[in-house]
Amino acid sequence: MEISLHPVAASDAAWLIERHHVLYAQDEGFDDSFGALVAQIVTEFLATRIDGREQGWIAWRDGRRLGSIFVVQRDAQVAKLRLFLLEPEARGTGLAQRMLEQAFGFARAAGYAQIVLWTHESHRAAGRLYARNGFALVESEPQHSFGQDVVAQTWHRNL
């Protein structure tokens, strides 16, 4: 069955929080503070989303969620990509590219000139995807976050 992208709904909140928490704990060793951060991001988005300027999507196939991606406003000209996640079974299928293109199209239509994101160096496949899609790595900084020593990265792309 075909994968479809649907706007995020309040009924997606528990899945978003749980899957980010579980997958990042499993893959990166992140502690509970990461799940708490995701819960805060999701709660704020659902409560304060700016119509026409912010949107999130959930990828679905056969009644099952496969991933998420969000575009939120950082400021009038800059959008921020957030909560980009794929279930392990959906990785390497082209879905990540499709979701990025959805986010770029929305951000352009909303009038943003640039899109930025924050991630970790350990997400090498994601970094390659971002680089292939015109993002430039503009900052890389060692930190201790979510119970782990990480290298935080900031990426920018003009729209």
Rank of each mutant, 00 (worst) to 15 (best):
G56C: 08
A14Y: 01
M1C: 11
D62Y: 09
G56L: 01
H123Y: 12
L23V: 02
L66Q: 07
G111D: 14
T154N: 05
S68P: 04
Q73A: 15
S140P: 03
W57E: 03
S122A: 15
G35M: 08
K80W: 06
A47T: 13
N158I: 08
R49M: 14
R132Q: 06
A126K: 03
Y24W: 14
E54N: 14
R64F: 05
H20S: 13
G63A: 08
A47N: 11
E101S: 04
W155K: 05
S122P: 10
R19W: 03
Q114K: 12
I17A: 05
L85N: 12
R53T: 04
E2G: 10
L137D: 09
I50L: 15
G105A: 01
V8Y: 06
R65P: 14
G127S: 08
W60I: 11
G29I: 12
R82C: 10
L85V: 00
H20V: 12
D31S: 04
G94A: 12
L66M: 07
R19C: 08
T43N: 09
G134I: 01
A10N: 00
R61C: 12
A131E: 06
A47I: 10
E18P: 02
A47K: 07
A39L: 10
L95P: 04
E89D: 15
L23G: 07
H6E: 14
L37G: 11
Y24A: 04
R108C: 01
A110F: 03
R82Q: 11
Q148K: 13
F30D: 14
L117D: 09
G63E: 04
H120K: 11
A47M: 11
L85R: 01
A96W: 00
R124W: 03
